[in-house]
């Protein structure tokens, strides 16, 4: 394949505090990043290097808490690496928060305009796609309802509907599909198939082996914050099942 590289993760690492009480001092702020003392921190990801070409569909595999979602957040640009670099060429449509990052007090309609706008969609385009997004989410009767009064299924429907309509070349999906009912899930799958056929790049986090095999050609296996294996999805799933038994299909929801 000679498609251009759209995502380049080079030696990326990010660390988090282990407990919330670990105070940062003002001294920390002005000390050089190397000299800082950080007793209670761990690396959620370290030395991860991945190159993704346009049109690839990548499944990310690993147990909970091994860095899958963090990797997606780095690619989405909502977190910044402490080490290394993450370069993304082209827009990203990230479905990484189950709630899509909507605001509780705004209505469905207001949230749609705000979120789509903040993800870079011009207002005119939102106007054009508004009906389609609402119909896909099956929320026609709820456009004036404050977001907080929606059921969790409705929230996921809205999130997927908006994000998958952003028309960005890269789509990130983080396990959210496990929440919706079957009918909606089928619709989402059809939509993802359609997007893939249209040449989008997909980054897919899931615990569901069937889904991973269905969409992805390449797999990344993350364990303890390190990239253990990067290869065809079948090999990656085999390696994962070898390490952790065949538990992958039974744990669908986090």
């Amino acid at each position: 394949m000679t498609a251009e590289t759209v995502i380049r993760v080079a030696d990326a690492g990010i660390r988090f505090r282990r407990n919330r009480r670990g105070r940062r001092s003002f001294k920390d702020l002005f000390a050089g990043s190397k000299r800082r003392s950080r007793p209670n921190e761990f690396w959620a990801l370290r030395n991860v290097s991945v190159e993704v070409r346009a049109g690839e569909a990548i499944g990310v595999v690993g147990r909970n808490g091994q860095g899958k979602s963090t990797l997606l957040k780095l690619v989405a640009g909502v977190m910044l690496p402490d080490e290394g670099a993450v370069e993304v060429h082209g827009g990203v449509a990230p479905l990484i928060e189950i709630t899509g990052g909507f605001v509780d007090d705004l209505t469905v309609r207001e949230n749609l305009y705000l979120t789509a706008g903040l993800h870079g969609m011009p207002k005119r385009e939102i106007d054009e796609r508004y009906d389609e997004i609402i119909d896909f989410a099956e929320l026609r009767d709820f456009v004036g309802t404050p977001y907080k009064h929606l059921s969790s299924g409705m929230k996921v429907r809205l999130a997927f509907s908006v994000i998958s309509r952003l028309e960005e070349p890269i789509l990130l999906v983080d396990e959210v599909l496990a929440v919706g009912d079957k009918a909606f899930r089928d619709k989402c799958y059809a939509r993802i198939d359609q997007l893939l056929a249209g040449g989008r790049t997909l980054f897919f986090v899931s615990h569901n082996e069937r889904d991973l095999k269905r969409f992805c050609t390449r797999g990344l296996y993350l364990d303890k914050g390190a990239l253990v294996l990067d290869g065809p999805i079948g090999d990656v799933l085999d390696a994962y099942n070898r390490d952790y038994g065949a538990g992958i299909t039974s744990t669908i929801v986090d």
């Binding site: 827009g91 705004l106 207001e110 705000l114 706008g117 903040l118 870079g120 011009p122 385009e125 028309e167 960005e168 070349p169 359609q194 997007l195 056929a197 249209g198 040449g199 989008r200």
Partner: peptide, 27 residues
């Protein structure tokens, strides 16, 4: 149905900044 992503006219960082700033301010 859908073919390749319709290339959205590239916007400068300043335009992106303005749009987002105005969206939140007007809200």
């Amino acid at each position: 149905m859908t073919t390749a992503p319709p290339p959205r006219p590239a916007r400068t960082p300043a335009q992106v900044y303005r749009q987002s700033l105005w969206l939140l301010t007007s809200r």
